[in-house]
Nucleic acid binder design. Structure first.
Lengths: 143, 143
DNA sequence: ACAATGTTTAAAATCATTCTAAACTACTTG
DNA sequence: CAAGTAGTTTAGAATGATTTTAAACATTGT
């Protein structure tokens, strides 16, 4: 993604193209699906020789999410993840290495969902398919 | 649940029936489906006039989970939830009041799950159906 | 260039959770 | 049932992720 299109992307979403947001947008929106946490992004940025405070990473991830450039994924590990794939979709989560893989919504068919309670509507459905290594054993329930 | 059967329940799972574990087990395992966080349990116990340290609540929830008396639910809000329903099942999560409702696994049919990556096996599938109030509007993506 | 407003930052604060080490309790053995 | 030992509980400190604060700084419109 060129510097110019990054600028445009930010402006189109009413975000001033600051040095910090340019760096993060360039990194995130290269067209490939990315899954990041605030910490992992911070590390990536640091590796590129750019210094950004962690607070800015959090601010920016939230701003990008608010304008629809990112999607927040909950329920993965202990930290919050952000996904550059903003389509409705689901995830494989590899518990052996904390890796996420997108599953297009169209690849999963959910049928027979029970009716919502009165006065409630379905806001969304999240499916997480946990993966582990074929060889590894589940721990037995011992104290 | 009587004091005696609570004692037995704990012993059957190799847990000493201490005052603290008895109180928590009696509260949790009354036969109805309960969804608790460490904090919510702590508050419930406090309301009954029993004083338990939060650390003990955490310890006990983990021990109960390890022996298969509880199931940990991930991806709900910011805290970890524990469920007395230990069958494989899914959840409605009402985002307006942080309430959980069980959905039996048999009530949802998931088909066409993509194949797992090489060397990986499916460890489990979690479905969370987010609910909101019929009247409330989704926030529009503004900065 | 200047003001006005938006943005970044370091540092402190917060929140959920875990760890630590000392005090305590339940179980076993003599 | 006394004493030892192994398991438990606890307060408080530590951790880790995230948010807040308030001051310094950058961008934009005029």
């Amino acid at each position: 993604m060129t510097a110019n299109s990054t600028t445009d992307l930010l402006r189109e979403h009413n975000l001033r193209p600051t040095r910090q947001r340019m760096a993060l947008a360039a990194l995130l929106f290269d067209g490939t699906a990315r899954h990041v946490t605030a910490e992992s992004l911070h590390d990536q940025v640091k590796d590129m020789g750019i210094t950004l405070s962690l607070a800015t990473i959090y601010n920016t991830l939230h701003q990008f999410t608010n304008v629809g450039l990112l999607k927040e994924i909950k329920g993965i590990g202990d930290a919050k993840w952000f996904d550059t794939n903003i389509d409705q979709h689901h995830h494989f989560f590899d518990i052996s290495n904390d890796h996420l893989i997108d599953i297009p919504a169209s690849s999963i068919t959910i049928s027979h969902l029970p009716a919502s309670p009165d006065g409630k509507v379905i806001d969304g459905v999240d499916v997480i398919v946990r993966l582990s290594d074929k060889s590894s054993q589940k721990p037995s329930g011992k104290n």
